[in-house]
């Protein structure tokens, strides 16, 4: 079976993650959707690396992982800060900003 099958799998996972980000209201669940999208992109990078027979794609995926880890740390800190201020992590709450 060709490694291109894993690119299809990555596409499906990316779609699921995108749908979760767009539909869920809980900030943490939406954030997990973002994580799933990043991982789907990683899977596509590794699959392309295998298709080309080069290791560069894996290095790119490694960089994505590092950036994702940094992003998770800051994102979760923001969620905690918002929760402290508003006692809620609903993504609909900031709609009150429009006054």
């Amino acid at each position: 079976m060709s490694p291109i099958a894993f690119v299809y799998l990555a596409t499906v996972l990316f779609g699921i993650g995108a749908a979760a980000v767009l539909t869920r209201r809980n900030a943490i669940i939406a954030f997990m959707g973002v994580e799933l999208m990043l991982n789907a992109a990683n899977l596509a990078l590794v699959a392309f690396s295998r298709i080309h027979g080069e290791i560069d794609g894996q290095v790119m995926a490694f960089f994505v992982m590092v950036v994702a880890a940094a992003e998770v740390v800051v994102g979760l800190a923001i969620i905690i800060a918002v929760f402290r201020a508003r006692q809620s992590i609903s993504l609909d709450e900031p709609a009150e900003l429009k006054g």
Partner: peptide
């Protein structure tokens, strides 16, 4: 598991 199958054992462990 997919990474290991795609000849990326290091990335699999890192994952």
């Amino acid at each position: 598991v997919a990474y290991v199958a795609l000849d990326a054992p290091f990335l699999g462990v890192v994952q």
